[in-house]
Structures are given as structure tokens and as C-alpha cells.
Design a protein around this nucleic acid. Structure first.
Length: 470
DNA sequence: CTAATCTTT
DNA sequence: CGGGAAAGATTAG
């Protein structure tokens, strides 16, 4: 296995002890707060269920899409009221879908769809992120299980609980009060705020900013994209800038939601989203969406060149290795095409040369996505090892790695060491622009942002390293 | 668009 | 009755 030994020896083997330490660490959870929100969400769900039954004019299981379909389309016949809109059907079953997009379209016609949408949101939060977390708890803490070899891209995954998928955004619940003259009370639920530090310790999170976009700039060498990152100070935040350009509003007017949308658009576009999907995200027509894709790829010309080059290389590997002349036919196995990440990780894509358009183009998008996502995963894993080594070889530092959320490393640090550790952490991570041992020399700098907090849900950015201690 | 986990039917 | 697929929610880029 050419090239893979280095990856195994220098990265995966070294990571094992880091993951072991992470699994041994206990993340404290505010059990009382969890119980309170579980009860709160429980009564909210009962309310919504009753509202749904009232709106439907019958009792039914609101969590069942089958029963909902019966109510929505066979009893209320809502699809007949909006034949102007095309309602997507579940594939191959000729049933009407009860998916989010359908319910969104139906919500002006009847009160029920809106209730269902809210029910689903609250139900998900309760079952997975409140009750689910509670069932993972031992005493007053959780420890996730980390899987090093469970993904095709080289990313880590976590389970029991999946700490990488705890909601980032708080949700607002309006609690109806049955006390006379009282306004309905609005409470915000934030699952991340249930994760708290030990007494005398602080969470410190370090994020690689726009890591995949920076890697795309490096991998494609696109001059416009490189410019965005190579001129420090010019661009405060790339996605905010792109949002301001797209929405035609000043960068100071860009809201957090605008930035998030811009981020989705950019990644969707470079990973090959079609105009239909993109128009859904943007809330515009498919024609406008395809115009956006074209103007984006026109401005960042080398991005398309990079995706084409990647697909070609994958096809080339396919042809080379499966050629009969290189191996005796009697021993010929199927050697699918593969692509390689920045540190030599591979992904095989046997369908890269498929006849079927759908199968082939999916493999092409996966090939492109792997090179960028896999390279980002490499970088984050190296960062974990470096930091772990840094702490282990220090006689004073006691910082502990608590979790990895792909581009973010979450540490628990003794209060008195936050400032010192933050500085080393940031410089160690940003120095990964150049990794001599693995031949990595990125054309763009890496940017790490830091934040601190006593709970994971109340992290605030550290803007000045010198003011960290107090 | 890509990559995951978790709950429910 | 139970395993597994599908749907639909969350996250990350």
C-alpha cells in the first residue's frame, strides 16, 4: 500500500492515544436543567398534539407520517386545494410526501401543517438532545465513543451521544400560562448549555475558520480565492463578505443567518449542487439559481478546473489499475478509481466510470468533496496530535481535550491557565500551514478563532489574547 | 452538494 | 415479533 504507511504511522496511530484520553474524559452535564427542560418540552408536545388533533378533527399519531398522510390528503384533501403547486411524491410509492417542503407549502391552506412542523422540531430536541443525552449519562457526566475508522472521508464520528450533532442554535418555546392575565412565557432551550465545566475550569474552543474553503483555495490555486485569504485584514470574514455581495447590503448589515446561508450556498455550489437544490436553499427560482452558479464559477474560474482535474485523476486511476496488461487476467480484481487527500488518504470510487448518469455524477461529486473534506479532516487530526503532545510535554499545562467537532477542538482548561494555553493552542494550530514531515505547504494561512465559556452553550469569542485571564 | 448519528414508523 | 430500510431531524464543511 504505497503512501498509506506514512498516514497510518504518523497520523492514525498517534491519534489513538488522543482518542483514548478523550473517551476517558468526563464531560459534566447539568442533570437538573436537563430534567426541567425534558418536562417543559413534554408539556409543550402534549399541547401541540392536542392542537393537531383539534385542527385535524380527529385523534391520530402525529409522529407517524403514514397517519399524517391520511389526515392531510385523504381526509382534508389539501392537495386538491393547491394544484397550482407541484407536490413532491414519495419515490416509487405514488404517495404524497409529508416532508418539510410539502408542509411549508401547505401551511397557508390549513393550520395543521404548521403545528406538525413545530411538533417535529420540539420532538426532535426532546427525544434526541434532552432525553437522549440523559440516557447516555452515568452519574452526572457523559463520555462519547469515538470512531476513528467509521467514515469514508477520514473524519471522526462520535456516538452515545453524538456530540458532533448537538444543536448550535437555541430554540424558543412559548409556554401557555393558565394563570389569569399572564402573558405567554417565552423560554429558550439550548442543549449545548447543558454541558458544563468542572469547578475551577473553563471551556476553550478553537475553530479553524473556513477550513474547507481555504483548502479549496490551496488545491485549486484560484487567484481570486487565494486573494481572499492571502491579504490579511482586507477581509474580516469571507462568508460575511460573500453574503453582503449576494444580498447587496453593507457588510455591517449582514446578520448571522445571512452568513450561514452564504456558507451553505458556497459549499453547495462548489460541491456540485444542481439549480433545483440551490433554488430551494436560496428561495429563488431555478433560473436565478443557475445564474448564480455561473457567475460564481466565472469569478472563481480555477474552481471548476480543480473539480474537473480531480474527476479526471480518479478516472485515470481507474483505467491504469484495471488494465489487464498490469496484472495477469486470472488475478485481476476490480481496481476502482480513487482520489487522494492532502496527506495521502484515499477514497475508492468504483462508480466513477459508470454508464448511468446519476450513479456516475454522484461519484464525481463524492470525489471532489472527498479531496477537500478529507484534507480538512487530516489537518484537524494532526492538530489534535500536536496539541496533545504539547500538553503532555509541558510540566505545567493540564488542559484536556474534551471533544472534536470536525473543525473545532473543545478543551477544558484550568481557569489560571486559559491565557497561556490559548496562545499556544492558536499558534500550534495555525502553524499547520506547513507540515514538513508530510510535505504540506498550504498557499493560504490558516486562521483559528478562540472562544471561552463556563458552558458549551455560552461561549464568547476571545478577541484579545492578553485579556484572557480576567 | 458532501460527510455523519439518532429516532421513529 | 423483530430486523432493516426510509424518512426526517440535527451537525460539520
Amino acid at each position: 500500500m504505497q503512501g498509506l504507511w506514512q498516514l497510518f504511522y504518523n497520523m492514525e496511530l498517534g491519534l489513538m492515544t488522543v482518542l483514548a484520553a478523550m473517551e476517558n474524559h468526563r464531560i459534566h452535564v447539568d442533570k437538573d436543567a436537563l430534567k426541567r427542560t425534558s418536562d417543559l418540552l413534554g408539556t409543550k408536545l402534549k399541547q401541540l398534539e392536542q392542537e393537531a388533533h383539534k385542527a385535524a378533527g380527529q385523534q391520530f399519531l402525529v409522529t407517524s407520517s403514514n397517519q399524517l398522510r391520511l389526515v392531510l390528503f385523504e381526509k382534508l384533501r389539501l392537495h386538491e386545494l393547491c394544484e397550482n403547486k407541484k407536490l413532491p411524491k414519495t419515490v416509487l410509492k405514488q404517495h404524497h410526501s409529508t416532508s418539510e417542503v410539502v408542509l411549508m407549502q401547505l401551511q397557508d391552506l390549513h393550520p395543521l401543517p404548521k403545528i406538525i412542523l413545530e411538533y417535529r422540531q420540539v420532538h426532535k430536541i426532546k427525544s434526541t438532545y434532552v432525553d437522549g443525552i440523559m440516557s447516555c449519562m452515568k452519574k452526572s457526566y457523559i463520555s462519547s465513543t469515538w470512531n476513528q475508522t467509521g467514515t469514508v472521508s477520514g473524519r471522526l464520528s462520535a456516538k452515545h451521544p453524538n456530540i458532533q450533532a448537538i444543536p448550535k442554535q437555541p430554540i424558543q418555546i412559548t409556554r401557555k400560562q393558565y394563570i389569569q392575565g399572564k402573558e405567554p412565557e417565552v423560554v429558550t432551550i439550548h442543549p449545548r448549555s447543558m454541558f458544563i465545566t468542572e469547578e475551577g475550569w473553563t471551556f476553550l474552543a478553537a475553530d479553524f475558520s473556513q477550513v474547507e474553503l481555504r483548502l479549496l483555495a490551496h488545491l485549486s490555486s484560484d487567484p481570486e480565492l487565494l486573494k481572499l485569504f492571502q491579504e490579511p485584514g482586507t477581509t474580516a470574514d469571507v462568508f460575511s463578505m460573500l453574503a453582503s455581495q449576494w444580498k447587496e447590503i453593507p457588510e455591517t448589515e449582514v446578520k448571522h443567518a445571512d452568513r450561514e446561508q452564504a456558507k451553505r450556498i458556497v459549499y453547495s455550489t462548489v460541491y456540485g449542487a444542481g439549480k433545483e437544490r440551490l433554488s430551494e436553499i436560496l428561495g429563488i427560482t431555478a433560473d436565478q439559481a443557475s445564474q448564480f452558479v455561473e457567475s460564481f464559477l466565472q469569478k472563481y474560474k480555477q474552481v471548476r478546473a480543480f473539480t474537473q482535474k480531480t474527476i479526471q485523476q480518479c478516472q485515470k486511476q481507474d483505467r491504469c489499475l484495471s488494465r489487464a496488461s498490469e496484472r495477469p487476467p486470472e488475478h485481476s480484481e476490480h481496481h476502482p478509481g480513487y482520489v487522494v487527500s492532502i496527506m495521502g488518504r484515499r477514497r475508492q470510487l468504483p462508480h466513477i466510470g459508470a454508464q448511468d448518469y446519476t450513479i456516475r455524477t454522484q461519484a464525481e461529486r463524492q470525489a471532489v468533496n472527498f479531496v477537500v473534506q478529507g484534507s480538512a479532516a487530516d489537518l484537524c487530526k494532526i492538530a489534535m496530535i500536536r496539541i496533545f503532545t504539547l500538553v503532555a510535554s509541558s510540566s505545567t499545562l493540564t488542559a484536556r481535550l474534551v471533544a472534536q467537532i470536525h473543525d473545532e477542538l473543545l478543551f477544558e482548561v484550568e481557569d489560571s491557565q486559559v491565557e497561556e494555553f490559548a496562545a499556544s493552542l492558536k499558534s500550534t494550530m495555525e502553524s499547520l500551514q506547513h507540515v514538513e514531515a508530510l510535505g504540506v505547504h498550504l498557499k493560504v494561512p490558516l486562521k483559528v478563532t478562540l472562544s471561552t465559556g463556563k458552558s458549551w452553550g455560552s461561549m464568547t469569542e476571545v478577541l484579545d489574547l492578553r485579556s484572557c485571564s480576567h
